[in-house]
Every structure is written in C-alpha cells, then in structure tokens.
Amino acid sequence: MTAEGGGEIVYLPRWRPGGSRVGVHRGRDAGGTGTFRDQVPFLRLPDARRIDLRASLHDPFEGLQVRRFEARTALECWVILDLSASMRFRGAGDRMRLAGQLCEGLAGAATRIGDAFGLMGCDERLREDLFLPATRRRAAALAVAGRVAEVPAEGRGAGGVLEAARLLAGRPKLVFLVSDFRWPDTLIEEAFRALALHDVVPVLLADSAEAEGLPAWGLVELDDLEGAGRRLVFLRPSLRRRWIEREAERVAALRRRAAPYARSPFRLADRFDADALSRHIMTT
C-alpha cells in the first residue's frame, strides 16, 4: 500500500466495503482468494475446490465444509474541499497549497491501490471548476488534485458542502472533509449530519500564525478574508493567551461536534505531513 518512501498516505476504512470491484480493502463479502474468513456448509457455497477436509472430518454431522475467503474490494475516496475565501490565508504555510498537497497525496495513494478518487470543491455552492467524479485513473486524479492550489478561493461561505454531501449517495465512502471550519456552528453540524453515512475524516487546516505563532506584543490590523470587516488589535501576552485559548476551544468544539458522526479531526498545520495523517487515520 505504501510506496515511494514515507510520503504516501495510508488509510484504512472503518467499515468493510461492499461491492464487487476488486481492491485492497477487506471487503464485506466473501470470495476469491486471500485471507481466510470462515467455513460454511458445502450447500451454502458449492465450491468443490475449497472443501476444507480437516473441518469436514471434524463435523459431527458429517457435513462438508467449504472455506471462505475475504473478498478484497476497492472503495471510493472523496475529498470535499472548502473553497471559501478564508482558505486563502497564508501564514506559516499557504493554506490552499497545503490542501493541494493533501489532495495530491490522497489521489496518488487512492489510485495506487485501485481505489477511486473523487474531488468536490465547494464554496456557497458546488464549484463546477473543481469537480472530479470518482475515478481510478491515476493521471486524471492527479491532474485535478494538482489544480487545487491554483483554484481561486473567493467564496463567502461553505454552504456547498451540503450539496456535495447529497451527491455522495450510495455505498459508504471514505470522505475527507478539508476545511478550516470557519463555519457557522449550524453548518458544521449539518455537514457532519449529512455525511454521517460515510467514513468522514475531517481535516482541519490550521496555521501556527493564527495561534501559537502570534507575536506577543504589537498592533495588528486584521482584515477578514471573507469580508467581515477590519479590526485593529493590540496584541499583548494576555490577549495572546486568550486568543490561543479561544482557538483551542474552537478545535475542541469541532471535535465534540464531529464525534457522533465522524472520526476526530486531523489538524493539518503549516506543513503537510503524510505520515502524521496516516497515523491519524490508522488510529482513529
């Protein structure tokens, strides 16, 4: 599953994907070759090639037992990307570039193991210029993912997320919800609820310049990227502490809000680190 050094994202779905498409994930269905799953009576699976002699001899009712193996199935990996203007923020890292690296990494990782990769950008509504239906074609996936960093992010909101969630009907999918989550609380709640069917990994794009990296002293004229106005702030240690506390509180609130519906959010700050993301996905 991994390749090309440590820069590859590894993910593990929380559920057993169904479907007949062959992939690498342990499927819900049995079939094919691979990991042993269980034994069933011959009558249930009349496959003479897989008669388990040892189990059949152990059967006090002298029935024939057939081995079943787990089917390896593929899944669809989707990225729902917030393209509101706040994503334009450049602090210690360029937020859209981070998102681009994440998408490229996911596109590469998904298509390498035969999973399909889809991408939906959305601001107030679904963005047509950044839409990729789930595809297993590596080149197509990488091409669209590579465009993410250049796509203009000018939206005033992220209401399109709900639209995107409606499009993700059908079988459960692995969904990366990539945003800075500077959303109204109701939208966060609704988005998670709309995506509850899927295995959702919220990716919180953060920046140390927004919190820990704040200077201790000085005047800063803040300009809201989403057009909510400007404000002069006199930074001083006490205010900086309050600021950082507020940010931590926001992340905690997001975690609380996500808990019933999704995995715990992954905080992607400053630099894209595929290993950290892999660890996060494998352990949550």
Binding site: R182, E221, D224, L225, R231, F234, L239
Partner: peptide, 19 residues
C-alpha cells in the same frame, strides 16, 4: 497600518483596549 488577512475575525477575542 499594514493589513493582515485573517480567515475569520472571530478568531480574535473582543478586546476593549484594542478598540
């Protein structure tokens, strides 16, 4: 003053002295 873009002004706590 030089303007600094911030994703959301909500991030900055309200502060009387700054105002």
């Amino acid at each position: 003053s030089r303007r600094t873009g911030l994703p959301s002004l909500d991030a900055a706590p309200a502060d009387g002295l700054s105002r």
